[in-house]
Design a protein around this nucleic acid. Structure first.
Lengths: 230, 230
DNA sequence: GTCTATACCCGGATAGAC
DNA sequence: GTCTATCCGGGTATAGAC
């Protein structure tokens, strides 16, 4: 019955990551104590510090193991589009789908914690915590560069600055879309149809409508009072 | 020289609120200690507990004093629209402007802390903290009811569920719009033009484009793999 | 009514035994 | 690799000064 090499039970570390991810979603980073995490993971308090070094480093690792994979898939989807197009300009809707659709697919995966993670990620973009923001910016640098470049090429008539802002707005909409699938939000009691299956087409319509909207006109004079006029 | 009634120096309480608001924006709720707040406000540690009862109650009061006024203005703007229309259906763009434009105007006020507050509010919609969410939901109940009703009337051909979701998406976009005016976000280094004056038209174009987008089609079969096809 | 000093318990981090 | 003991800083409650 002796197996040649029993894999050296790489358990504790992963159990801590899973427990932390779930608890962070439910309570937030700060309200989740290391004692909560380790007790849920069946580990000792000091195990977090041993395996990760600090609570902050644990948070970072929770994101890293998921985000790296998500952004890899996003880049792969974009590269597939570009290969299929063979040099021709891409359709903006495809690009948007490669970025946001991939994320929503992960959010739809309730079996392996993808949904849990995306809820966490969505609200973390605006985290005040400096090290979290710094880390996210680094993790996203390449993907943003590539997707923005693709959109610039797909929408040559739209000023780049405008595309940049609209991409930013789209990320906000997605963040709230994911958060909104979980009740207990501002619209609690209003949503009759929170079917995750339908979220993707709903969000995609909205995002593309916003991305393709007529360009804004900037009036040189202050526009104060513009709303008051009938 | 004896004045009739010297107003009994209602200072400490307000100084604490101002200090808390500023520190919450910079560090977040949890990372801001009561000792930081009271020392910045020139007050004793126990003053928070005396004036507000707890840190949570202080957070709540920071929001209440600003949010009540913002939502009052929103409702006033909506009522003005309805009075001017005299029973005729409202233009969706006007409704959107009454809600989001009013908020952005507050965000543009850097003199009296409006900007500071809106940054804080934007990221708080998705707070995991249960009591904060609960409180926001109550503060927003009436405004949401009224604005959604107005949009239902203005867009009779759009399913209400769809309007609801799109309103939710719009709030996400606005939240990120405000957060994006402060550098140090994901897009740090990308924005060349973060002029707050231009943010309003930019965001409005996007929101209206999304709101008026063609309705999504829900396929009955699972759409898995739809993106992979060329 | 307003404010202060202080004591309490909980949470994160670390050292060192095993 | 894991656990125990301990330290320091955070929120909170209270007693009492003004």
């Amino acid at each position: 019955m002796s197996q040649p090499v029993r894999p050296p039970a790489p358990e504790t570390r992963d159990r801590i990551l899973d427990a932390a991810e779930a608890l962070f979603v439910e309570h937030g980073f700060e309200a989740t104590s290391m004692r909560m995490i380790t007790s849920q993971a069946g580990a000792n308090i000091a195990a977090v510090n041993y395996h990760f070094g600090s609570k902050d480093a644990l948070i970072q690792e929770v994101f890293r193991r998921r985000l790296t994979e998500l952004n890899r898939q996003r880049l792969a989807a974009l590269e597939r589009l570009q290969a299929d197009a063979g040099g021709a300009p891409l359709k903006p809707s495809r690009i948007v789908d490669a970025f946001f659709g991939t994320a929503l697919e992960l959010a739809a995966d309730t079996e392996h914690g993808g949904h849990t993670f995306m809820r966490l990620l969505g609200r973390t973009y605006t985290e005040p915590n400096a090290f979290v923001r710094q880390f996210l910016a680094e993790e996203y640098a390449e993907v943003l560069e590539r997707f923005l470049g693709a959109l610039y090429g797909a929408l040559p008539d739209v000023p780049r600055e405008e595309i940049l802002w609209r991409f930013h707005f789209m990320m906000g909409a997605m963040s709230y879309a994911i958060a909104g699938t979980d009740g207990l939000q501002l619209f609690a009691g209003h949503f009759d149809d929170a079917d995750p299956q339908r979220l993707m087409p709903r969000l995609m319509s909205f995002l593309l409508g916003g991305l393709r909207a007529p360009l804004p006109e900037f009036s040189e004079v202050a526009r104060k009072g513009g709303r008051e006029a009938a």
